[in-house]
C-alpha cells in the first residue's frame, strides 16, 4: 500500500491552473475574513510550509526528525537576534532567519545522517533538547523564557489581510520550490535513497550526502516558516523551538498522510482548523486528533491525502 503510494506520483508537472485557483481563493478569503479568521488562515499557511518541509524527510528521504521545531524556531530567533541584538535592518533579519536554520540543519544533519532509522531519530531529539536548553538558559543573548518581542511590529504593521497576502506569496513560492525539489533529479535521488539505500548506493548515490541535502533543504524551509511566524506575532519564545511545536509538525504530517506531497498541507488545515475552531467548544480537541490518527492507521494509512485522492478518483471516474 505504502510502496504503491511512493511510486504513485506519476505527474511531475505543476498544475498551474490549480495553483492559481488556490492562490486566488485564499487571497479572496483573506480579504473577506474578520481578523481572527485571517489569523487562522495565516497560521494554516505557515504550518503547511513547516509540515511540508518536515514531510520531505518523513515521506521522501527515509528520516524521522524528533526535533524539527528547532529549525522552525531558530528562523524566528535568527530574525529577532539579528535585529534586536545586532541592530540589523529588518530585511537583513528576514534573510538571516532561514539561513540560521539552514546552518543548524547542516551541522546537526551532518551528525544525524551518520546514523540510520531510530538511532538517527534519537540523535535529532538530543540535538533539539540541547538547542532548547541553550535558547532557554542563555538569557543575555536569547532573553530566556521572556523571549524577544517588539523587535518587529506584529505583522510588519500591516492589516491581517495584507500580511496574509505576503505569507501567501512566500509560502506558495516555497511549496512550489519544494515540489520542484521532490521531482527534480535531486528529489529522485532523495527518494531512491529513502526507499532503498542499498540499491541507491549501488547506483552511486551516497546515502549520507543525499540525506544531508534533504535535511538542509527541510531545515531552510522550516526556517522560512519560523521567520514568518516570528513576524506574524512580532516575538519569539523558547516554545517555538520546543517539543510541542515538534509534535505539532509530526502530527500534521501523519494526519495528512505519509508518502504524499500534500501531507503537510492537508494536515495543517485539519489540525489548525480543530485548534482554532473546535478548541472553543470542546477543550479536549487533542483527543479528537488522537482518535483521527488511530482511524488513519486502521482505515486509511495514506491519511487525508489518501482519502482525498480516492474520492477525487471516484468523482473523476463518474464524471468520465
Amino acid at each position: 500500500m505504502a510502496a504503491e503510494h511512493r511510486r504513485g506520483n506519476a505527474s511531475w508537472s505543476i498544475d498551474w491552473r490549480l495553483v492559481a485557483a488556490t492562490f486566488v481563493l485564499v487571497a479572496i478569503a483573506l480579504h473577506l475574513s474578520p481578523p481572527l479568521v485571517a489569523f487562522a488562515i495565516i497560521e494554516v499557511m505557515i504550518f503547511a510550509l513547516y509540515a511540508s518541509a518536515l514531510n520531505l524527510l518523513l515521506s521522501y528521504s527515509g528520516m524521522v526528525s524528533f526535533g524539527h521545531a528547532v529549525y522552525f524556531g531558530l528562523g524566528a530567533y535568527g530574525l529577532a537576534i539579528t535585529i534586536a541584538k545586532f541592530g540589523w535592518p529588518m530585511w537583513a533579519g528576514v534573510v538571516a532567519g532561514p539561513l540560521v536554520s539552514a546552518f543548524f540543519g547542516l551541522v546537526y544533519g551532518a551528525l544525524c545522517v551518520q546514523l540510520t532509522a531510530i538511532y538517527a531519530a534519537m540523535l535529532t531529539l538530543a540535538c533539539a533538547e540541547i538547542t532548547f536548553a541553550i535558547v532557554f538558559q542563555w538569557f543575555d543573548f536569547t532573553g530566556g523564557d521572556s523571549g524577544i518581542s517588539g523587535h518587529v511590529p506584529a505583522m510588519m504593521g500591516l492589516s491581517p489581510a495584507w500580511f496574509g497576502m505576503v505569507v501567501l506569496v512566500v509560502v506558495t513560492i516555497c511549496i512550489l520550490a519544494l515540489w520542484r525539489v521532490v521531482h527534480a533529479p535531486l528529489g529522485l535521488t532523495i527518494r531512491a535513497v529513502g526507499e532503498n539505500p542499498v540499491r541507491a548506493a549501488a547506483m552511486g548515490h551516497g546515502r549520507k550526502r543525499v540525506q544531508l541535502a534533504a535535511f538542509v533543504i527541510s531545515a531552510f524551509l522550516s526556517g522560512v516558516a519560523g521567520t514568518l511566524y516570528g513576524i506574524f506575532h512580532g516575538n519569539v519564545f523558547p516554545e517555538y523551538v520546543g517539543v510541542l511545536f515538534t509534535i505539532d509538525g509530526l502530527v500534521m504530517v501523519l494526519l495528512g498522510g505519509l508518502y504524499s506531497f500534500g501531507a503537510g498541507i492537508y494536515g495543517a488545515i485539519v489540525y489548525k482548523l480543530l485548534d482554532n475552531v473546535m478548541a472553543h467548544y470542546f477543550e479536549y480537541w487533542q483527543l479528537v486528533i488522537g482518535v483521527i490518527l488511530v482511524l488513519v492507521v486502521l482505515v486509511s494509512p495514506a491519511g487525508i491525502a489518501g482519502l482525498v485522492s480516492t474520492v477525487a478518483a471516484r468523482l473523476r471516474g463518474r464524471a468520465g
Partner: peptide, 11 residues
C-alpha cells in the same frame, strides 16, 4: 495522479 497537489478544494 495529479491529485497530490489538489489541495485547493479542501482548503
Amino acid at each position: 495522479m495529479k491529485t497530490s497537489i489538489r489541495f485547493g478544494v479542501p482548503l
